[in-house]
């Protein structure tokens, strides 16, 4: 079965970055976006203007786990979250290159890596997201949503032609 992860609906994301603050407050008890396990990406170029938050996608075959030379990362079978064994992790950052989504954080004080753990199923970023762009859902729930949206868009485009 597929796992629930924090998914960002880019059509709703306004790029405010509050998720970063909420994450650092929850996990580190301070405000510091550099310590957040979720990051908002704001693309600002002449012709593109996009906002989207990204965190661990909970890959079915997590390449970060496979890449770790010290076997410090382990995927939880039930939740799919990646846990970090602090005594094994030496901060080599091999997993950073393995992750296609840039979802791994290096914790400067602890000298080890940190990855989103969904706040044990009660993801705080999701609870705070002002536009509800962030949701804690499975990939299948994402496709359900996208199907609905596709049909809705078709309807709107037909309407506009009338």
């Amino acid at each position: 079965m597929s796992h629930r992860s924090v998914v960002c609906d880019y059509e709703k994301c306004i790029g405010c970055g509050l998720c970063e603050l909420v994450c650092s407050a929850e996990k580190e008890r301070v405000f510091n976006p550099s310590l957040s396990r979720i990051h908002v990406v704001n693309i600002r170029s002449a012709h593109a203007f996009e906002n989207m938050s990204l965190t661990c996608r909970l890959c079915e075959v997590p390449s970060c786990v496979a890449s770790c030379p010290r076997k410090a990362l382990r995927a939880n079978e039930r939740t799919g979250t990646i846990s970090v064994n602090d005594s094994k992790c030496d901060g080599c950052s091999w997993c950073f290159n393995a992750c296609d989504f840039g979802a791994i954080l290096f914790h400067p004080a602890r000298r080890t890596v940190r990855i989103c753990d969904l706040c044990d199923g009660d993801a705080k970023c999701v609870k705070f997201c002002p536009t509800r762009a962030l949701q804690l859902i499975t990939p299948n729930q994402v496709s359900t949503k996208m199907r609905k949206r596709a049909v809705e868009k078709r309807r709107m485009s037909l309407l506009s032609r009338v």
Binding site: I14, G15, C16, N51
Partner: peptide, 17 residues
């Protein structure tokens, strides 16, 4: 495109192309 300034839950910025 509705966009927020940093740390703003409102997001009133209207990015127009």
């Amino acid at each position: 495109k509705v966009t927020a300034c940093w740390g703003c839950p409102t997001g009133c910025d209207q990015i127009t192309s």
